[in-house]
Simulated scan of single mutants.
Amino acid sequence: MKNIFTLLVFVLGMIGAYAQEEIPSLTYGNTQDINFFSSIKNGASVKEYTTANNNIIKVGDTIVLGLPTSHETNTRTYANSYGSDSRGTVAESRSTSTKTFQFIKMGKPAGLGIIVTTMSDESQDMADMSLKNTNVVVKEIKTYHRGSKKKPLYVVLVLGELNGRAFGVYKYLSVMDTELAIESGEILLKNQKMTREEAIAKLKEAKELMDVELMNREEFEDLKKELTPLIKNQN
């Protein structure tokens, strides 16, 4: 009974620590600026987030799940007897490998269920290959510290199905690190801006096409003018 009471006090304390706070607009620069992030509570709600590549994500936006980038291996051991004299048992191990998302988990990022799961040391259930190319809607945007309040923030997206149904037994998905999920291609934003590396690659490809006369000089110069700001302004 004492243990149950202690657990209840701990859970209520954790829920209180994640009290609601709303930030109208958050940028990647804010998440790295100690003068800003040191005053932000864990679990603060965000209405609009501007990523490191200046893409804007708002509550209510539709995004697409890309491809999983992690492998999950399950190993099972079987004990079998061979022959009519049953001289003994032989253990066999069979492994199966499935692709899972590294940054997208099933369920919400916080709350009583997640706290209890964490305390019982259960592994998180990551989304799998069956959800690739799924259109989802951003239901919530949350931000958390990478440790204490003196640590930078990271941004979590809570995603729901477009038709309001659940992802199997789960109502929501959580993108546990938005920047890394974008960088890895696990989430794809609508009207996503080209990165500096992508702009350079596209310009190099255009130069090669011009060299073999599959693109004329005027088309190349127009593309170069369009891509130059992306190449020069991003570090």
Rank of each mutant, 00 (worst) to 15 (best):
T77E: 10
K99I: 02
L65S: 06
V137C: 06
T98N: 12
M194S: 11
E21M: 02
T50L: 03
E140D: 15
E179P: 11
L8G: 02
G113A: 06
E221R: 14
I57Q: 05
Q192M: 06
I187V: 12
T96D: 14
L180Y: 07
N135I: 14
S25C: 11
G185Y: 12
I141P: 13
T134G: 12
G164V: 08
S86H: 10
A19R: 06
G185P: 09
V59R: 13
T100M: 04
A206S: 04
K193T: 05
L12F: 15
K58C: 00
S25A: 13
K232Y: 01
K58A: 01
N74V: 12
D33E: 04
G185A: 06
L203R: 12
N55G: 02
F5R: 09
S45K: 15
T134Q: 13
I231K: 13
S39Q: 07
F103R: 07
T50G: 01
K232A: 01
V64S: 08
E221D: 01
A110Y: 11
K193E: 07
L214D: 03
I200S: 08
K224W: 07
V9Q: 08
S38R: 03
T50D: 09
G83L: 13
P24R: 14
N30W: 01
M194P: 04
D33G: 02
L223G: 13
A166T: 10
F167W: 08
L8D: 05
N30V: 00
N74P: 00
K142V: 06
A19P: 00
T228F: 03
T134P: 12
V137Q: 14
T6G: 05
E161G: 03
Y154L: 13
N30T: 01
E22V: 15
